[in-house]
């Protein structure tokens, strides 16, 4: 009988207080994103061999995480929402990894 006596919902992992971010935070994030865009373009012109696509994807991932954490408020959301976001990327990686397991090993032993 304890679950519904928690009127303030403080122990509920599916609940988070409604958090309002101010324009200051948003501006910081906005400037960060623009700088990262500049870095990404700059990095593309530096020869780094196989590292080039990795750096590009790493910067893109940082940007995506920044957008999700602050613009999309994931940082201030309940654990449920965080897990939901995680589940999406997890399934996407399952799709990539498991399919790649076929393509990578298809020619093994055949050369």
């Amino acid at each position: 009988m304890s679950a519904h006596n928690d009127a303030m919902n403080t122990t509920n992992p599916e609940h988070a207080e409604h958090h309002i971010l101010g324009p200051g935070t948003y501006t910081t994030i906005y400037v960060t994103l623009l700088i990262l865009t500049g870095i990404t373009v700059g990095a593309a012109f530096i020869p780094m061999g196989v590292l080039n696509p990795i750096v590009a994807l790493a910067i893109a991932s940082v940007k995506a995480v920044v957008v999700m954490l602050w613009f999309m408020h994931v940082k201030y959301q309940s654990r449920l929402i965080k897990m939901t976001v995680g589940a999406g990327f997890f399934t996407f990686f399952v799709l990539i990894m498991m399919t790649m397991s076929d393509y990578i090993s298809r020619a093994w032993g055949q050369w």
């Binding site: 865009t37 994807l57 910067i59 940007k63 613009f71």
Partner: peptide
């Protein structure tokens, strides 16, 4: 407004990945 914001930011994120993947494949060569 909040939920539309989520959608709009998601569309942003897709582009954030598309830009380096499509435009910046091999600029240094």
């Amino acid at each position: 407004i909040e939920n539309f914001g989520l959608y709009w930011h998601f569309v942003d994120i897709v582009w954030i990945f598309l830009f380096p993947l499509l435009y910046l494949i091999n600029k240094h060569v």
